[in-house]
């Protein structure tokens, strides 16, 4: 009997050979997330007359494995803001807890102000920038939607490096390649946001999610849409990509460029 507690329940050295101690090291260089593990794909966002819409599918992939198929990647903050997360799911959950604690603190505070989407975006982008500056990044690309200080629709993005930008329509991940061109065509810059209705915006995002489901291998046909208006946030969970037609798939050979 060995009296070292560390040895209890471990394979015996004399039978199995010594355990590789590199797995037990507590010294040596500190390690950080160098790459994401369980990931979420695109987040889509668009502004319309009087509000914003965010959309994302409910998938969390483990590499190419569709690991978790019921993960909500859109998160409410207060009554007027929604944050959408793509990238690492565990880092999303960390940020989610962080936002929970801020929300609780805000609700207990006496000043009565509530953080709007713009404040929230500033805060999150600073968290992301601080972590990248420590070489310990939160591996996410986020979209924040809601309203700014003037109560105008607000939509902005922040990534794992702390880079921020804003536009009438935004998409992360594969959506930046597949959905943004569709959105830019449907709602060109010449067309003012005041002309875009809520129904139009929602329909456009549903269409984009369908395209992503057809062509992004790390996507799912189950998704969530969040509509943010001054009246409140309308969450539509457990949505399904409707009217799928895979007829186009039969004609594709090779990478799609081949004719016969």
């Amino acid at each position: 009997m060995n009296h070292f507690p560390e040895a209890w329940g471990r394979p015996r050295d004399d039978v199995y050979g010594p355990y590789n101690p590199s797995y037990l090291q507590t010294t040596g260089p500190k390690t950080h997330t160098q790459s994401p593990a369980v990931t979420g794909s695109s987040i889509l966002g668009i502004k319309f007359n009087g509000g914003c819409v965010l959309a994302s599918d409910n998938l969390a992939s483990y590499g190419s494995l569709a690991r978790f198929t019921d993960v909500k990647r859109l998160r409410k903050f207060g009554d007027t803001a929604v944050v959408g997360f793509s990238g690492d799911i565990s880092d999303m959950q960390y940020l989610d807890r962080l936002l929970d604690s801020i929300d609780i603190r805000e609700n207990y505070s006496a000043h009565g102000n509530t953080l709007n989407a713009k404040n929230l975006h500033t805060y999150l982008s600073k968290v992301l920038y601080k972590r990248r500056s420590e070489f310990n990044p939160l591996w996410n690309h986020i979209l924040v939607a809601g309203f700014d200080d003037d109560k105008k629709p607000f939509l902005s993005s922040a990534d794992l490096l702390g880079t921020t930008f804003s536009a009438p329509h935004l998409a992360t991940g594969f959506g930046a390649h597949l959905a943004l061109p569709i959105l830019r065509r449907l709602f060109p810059e010449e067309r003012p946001i005041e002309e875009i209705t809520k129904d139009e915006a929602v329909a456009a995002l549903r269409e984009c999610l369908k395209v992503l489901w057809y062509r992004d291998a790390r996507s799912l046909d189950k998704y969530t849409i969040a509509v943010i208006t001054p009246q409140g946030i309308e969450f539509q969970e457990d949505q399904k990509v409707e009217a799928q037609s895979w007829a186009f798939a039969e004609t594709i050979k090779g990478y799609g460029a081949q004719v016969n």
Binding site: E6, R10, D13, Y19, P21, L24, G28
Partner: peptide
């Protein structure tokens, strides 16, 4: 010789950071 002493140095080569900031 029992490999359970957790603080011993392991000689594991330092890993290069793949994160470019």
């Amino acid at each position: 010789a029992i490999g359970y002493s957790f603080t011993q140095s392991t000689g594991v080569p330092t890993k290069e950071h793949s994160f470019y900031p």
